[in-house]
Computed example of a mutant assay.
Amino acid sequence: MKALLIGATGATGKDLLHLLLADDTFSRVDVFVRRSLSVQHEKLHVHVIDFDAVEQWQELVTGDVLFCSLGTTLKVAGSKEAQWKIDYDYQYNFAKAARANNVPKLVLVSAALASATSIFFYNKMKGQLEEAIQALDFPRLSIFNPPALIRKDSDRPGEALAIKITKWFNKIGLLTKQRPLPTEILAQALLHASLNQNEGFHRYAGEEIWKYAGK
C-alpha cells in the first residue's frame, strides 16, 4: 500500500509517520510538507510544497490512503483567517485532490467538539471541514474526534492545564469519556483505521479510540 500524509511535522503526524515506516503493509509513504524533514527511510518520499499552489502538487496525491493530521493553534497562526487556511483550506484541498485522483480512503483527525453549528470558531471550523469532506463521498472515510491530546514536549500551556484538570476529574470517576489521549495511541488508531477495508463512513471518539488502538 501507498500512504499519503499531511501534518507529518505535528505531534500526531510524527508518531503516525514512525508507525507507517515500520509497518510492512506500506511499501511507500509520501509526505507533503513546507520544509524538509530530518527523517530518512528507504520508503519515505518527501514533497516540499507550497500548500497554496494546488496546481503544483495535486497530481502527486495518488495512493491507497490519505491521512490528514494537519493543524495549528490560533496563537501560532496569528489570526482566525490564517488558522482557517491551515486547518480547513489545506486539508480540504488535499482531500479534494485525493478524491479526484481516486484515492479510496481518507483518515481525518478532527476535534472532540467539532460541530458545523458551534458558536465557537475552532469547533465550527472543524465541523464544517468534516461536512465538506464527507460530501466528497470517499468510498472509505474515517473521522477521529479525539479528546485533549498528550503531546511530547508540548509548549501549549492552555492544553497542559486542560489535561491536568481532566485527569483530576478522571481520578474521581468523572469525564472518563474524555480521558486525555497520548498522540502515540491516536496514531495507532489511525493506522488501524487505514487497514480496515469496511466500506463507508466511520467515526471514532473518546474511549472508542483507545479500544481501536488495542489499549
Score class of each variant (00 low, 15 high):
Q56W: 00
Q56N: 06
Q56A: 13
W57Q: 06
W57T: 05
Q58W: 03
E59Q: 15
E59L: 13
L60S: 12
L60F: 12
V61Q: 05
T62M: 13
G63Y: 11
D64G: 14
V65L: 06
L66S: 00
L66R: 04
L66I: 08
F67P: 03
C68L: 15
C68Q: 07
C68D: 10
S69P: 00
T72E: 11
T72S: 10
T73H: 07
T73P: 05
L74F: 10
K75R: 15
K80R: 15
A82F: 00
Q83Y: 10
K85E: 14
K85F: 09
K85D: 09
I86F: 14
D87W: 12
Y88V: 08
Y90W: 10
Y90M: 11
Q91R: 11
Q91F: 10
Y92H: 12
Y92W: 13
F94Q: 02
A95Q: 04
K96V: 00
A97F: 02
R99G: 03
A100D: 11
N101T: 01
N101D: 05
V103Y: 00
V103L: 02
P104M: 12
P104G: 06
K105R: 15
L106F: 06
L106A: 06
V107T: 05
V109K: 01
V109E: 04
S110M: 05
L113R: 08
S115A: 06
A116V: 08
T117M: 03
S118G: 03
I119C: 03
Y122K: 10
K126M: 09
G127F: 10
Q128Y: 07
Q128L: 09
L129H: 08
L129N: 04
E131M: 09
E131T: 13
A132Q: 04
Q134G: 01
A135I: 04
A135P: 01
L136K: 00
L136F: 00
F138I: 05
L141M: 08
S142P: 02
S142W: 01
I143D: 04
F144M: 01
N145K: 13
P146I: 05
P147G: 09
P147Y: 08
L149Q: 11
I150Q: 12
I150K: 07
K152F: 11
K152L: 11
D153N: 15
D153C: 07
